[in-house]
Structures are given as structure tokens and as C-alpha cells.
Design a protein around this nucleic acid. Structure first.
Lengths: 185, 185
DNA sequence: GAGAAGATTGACTAATCAGTCGGTTTAAAA
DNA sequence: TTTTAAACCGACTGATTAGTCAATCTTCTC
């Protein structure tokens, strides 16, 4: 693994455990087993590191989700697949999840950053389709996406505290119904 | 206004603008117009200050919401009243809202802290009632509350970016339907 | 194998930080 | 009036911080 990747792995773990505030750059470098200087070679400032991590995580969740949806699926099937992919990805990558929660609720974050990502753009397009087909509520597509996202987050938080439910497909389906009912007409 | 209150006001503003990480205690004291020492007289550590602010805000939103619900209301009316109270309170107190988002998504936060507050306890009781009456989905009351809360947050974020909709009662009702549909059976 | 360009080091620094402390003021009780 | 305790001040400190830099190593190209 190259040093840039090592740094991002270590930073993710430390940020999710101790927050941006509680994590010194020197500690990241030390625990990653690289020199202090190389951190600033790849990420000129601490903020650059934090932002780079955000885009990296969004990219990976996008890759993962896209592989799941198949052509010819109904709208509800597609939404379900994306919902499940997001829930499962976040459960399997708790450090990424914690990092994202912190980041998206910090002053770093803005709607511009959110909209800039392909993952969001793709989801918004799907929402538009649902509205056109009169399946979703007639509200701004971005809003419907944001509602879905926050319900995914809450679902993940809940399943983390109740791990015995994580493998219960029938229960997960009922959790999906919350999200589906929220946006469907 | 006494110095303790002044400190909390200033801290809230600075935290919501620059985050916990970006706000030095010395700056809080300075902008509050009090000495550095008095901050640590009232709040032994920075963390104590942060936690005290969390409980203070929760208390005030609880006070505000309780005053709105009236006896004899139907379940849906009560939920609507609470939903609207939360949305409007957060819109009117943006710094509190930003602070809470940051706090609740930071490593400071835990389910124990969440459950410890009266506001949450009251809401959970209401959720239990809804489940018993077969009006809500048969899921853990705390989960239903958390779903509602996250939908409120998303609604507030959305209305902040679209201020022209803040006074549109009919539109707000449609936003409420999202939350209601999510939890109703 | 010369030479260029990027990767890597770790000691270093100037600034900043949370928290302390010795002493002063205020205000109310005794 | 005296006592007492809490409110208050701000200079101070020791530790920590993000970021720098001059030097060395590695890797590729020509």
C-alpha cells in the first residue's frame, strides 16, 4: 500500500474515533508509519486531507452501489437496491460512515459540495424519473434524495446498536418501507 | 445578562461558524467580553462547556414544544404540532440547530446521552401510544422517534436553502406528509 | 550512467492552545 | 463592621499544533 493510501486509512480511523478536533496530523503520520513531512507533501493542509477523504469515500460508495442496480428493474426495485447497498456498505465500513456523518454536519460541508458528486447526481435523476412517473411525491428531486439519505443514516445507526437485526432480511424490508413510504405518493 | 449566559451565547455562535475544532476558548472569552479565567470557573474544561450547551438547547426546545401541544388532540394532530414546533424552532434558532447537528454527529454523542433527556422520553411515549393504537408501524418506539427527528433535520436544512417556502403553510403540510407517511402504518 | 523529478525524511519553529494561579473585587451574611 | 465565599481578572505556562525546509533517496528517462 502506498503512503498516501496508508495516511488516508489511518486518518479515517483516528478521525472517526477522536474527531477532526482530537486528531493531530503528527499522530496520523506516526501511526501510519510514515514521516511527518510526507503528509504535507500529499495534503498541503489538514483541511485538504479531510476534503480528499470525503471525495474518496463518496467515490467508493458510488462504485459499490452502481454495480448493484440492473437494467430492466422497476423503479421501486432500483430504489430498494440502492437503499440496501447504502445501508450495507455503511454497516461494513463503520469508520467511513462515522467520518461522513461528522463531515457532512460540520462547517466544511455545503450544498455545492453535495451536488458536485456523481452519486448525488445519479440519485437525483432517479428521483426525477419517479416524480415524472407519478410514483414519488411532487417535491424537489434533491429533497427526496436528501430525505432518503437521512433515513438511510438513521437506519444504519439503529442497526449498529441492534446487530442481531442486521441479518434479518424480513426486518430490513420493513425498515425499507419507512423510506419508501416517505417518498412515494 | 450574566457572564455564564454571555459565554454560552458567544460559544454557540463561534462553534456553529467554525466548529469545535476551530474555536479557541480564549476567543470565546474575548468575544463575550469577559476574562479568560471566568470561562474555566463556570466550565472546568472545554468539553464541559460543549456538553452544557447541548443540555441547555435540548431543554429550551423541550419547553417550547410542550407549550404547543394541547389536550384532546388526536395522535396525528399531536405529531404534527410537535413536528411543526421542531421545524420552526430550528429555523428561528439556526445557531442552535448547527450546534446540535455538529454535536450529535461527533464522538461526544451516544445513545445514552440521547435517551437521558426528557424531550426524547416524551416523544418515545407518544410513539408507544401510536404503535398500541395501530396507527404507527410496529417498530421500536425509539427508532420511530429517530426517523422523525432526522426528517425534521432534513426539512429544516431544505427550508433554510429555500427561505421563500418557509411561510408557505400548504407546502409545509406536504413536507409533513413525508414524515407522517414514514412512520404511519 | 548522467541527470532530472518526484518521493521521503525528521528535526525544527512560530504560533496557538487549554487550563492554572495568585490576587482582587463584590455582595451578602453574621 | 467583620467575615466569608463566590465572582472575577489577566498574565502566565507547558504542551501541542500545523506546517516548513534542507537534505537524501528512489525511480525513471535519455
Amino acid at each position: 500500500m502506498d503512503k498516501r493510501t496508508k495516511l488516508m486509512h489511518t486518518a479515517k480511523r483516528l478521525f472517526s474515533e477522536n474527531g477532526f478536533y482530537g486528531t493531530a496530523t503528527a499522530r496520523i503520520a506516526k501511526e501510519a508509519g510514515v514521516s511527518n513531512g510526507i503528509l504535507f507533501h500529499y495534503f498541503p493542509t489538514k483541511d485538504d486531507l479531510i476534503k480528499a477523504m470525503y471525495f474518496d469515500i463518496k467515490d467508493r460508495i458510488f462504485q459499490y452501489s452502481l454495480g448493484q442496480v440492473y437494467k430492466g428493474a422497476t423503479l421501486k426495485e432500483s430504489i430498494y437496491t440502492l437503499w440496501l447497498a447504502a445501508v450495507e456498505w455503511n454497516l461494513e465500513n463503520p469508520e467511513d460512515f462515522d467520518f461522513m456523518l461528522q463531515f457532512e454536519n460540520s462547517p466544511y460541508y455545503s450544498v455545492e459540495i453535495e451536488k458536485s458528486h456523481k452519486y448525488v447526481q445519479m440519485s437525483v435523476e432517479l428521483a426525477e424519473k419517479g416524480i415524472e412517473q407519478n410514483v414519488f411525491k411532487h417535491l424537489t428531486p434533491l429533497l427526496l434524495f436528501q430525505m432518503m439519505s437521512s433515513l438511510v443514516d438513521t437506519t444504519v445507526k439503529f442497526l449498529r446498536i441492534n446487530p442481531e437485526l442486521q441479518t434479518d432480511i424480513e426486518y430490513k424490508n420493513r425498515l425499507f418501507e419507512i423510506a419508501w413510504d416517505a417518498i412515494k405518493k
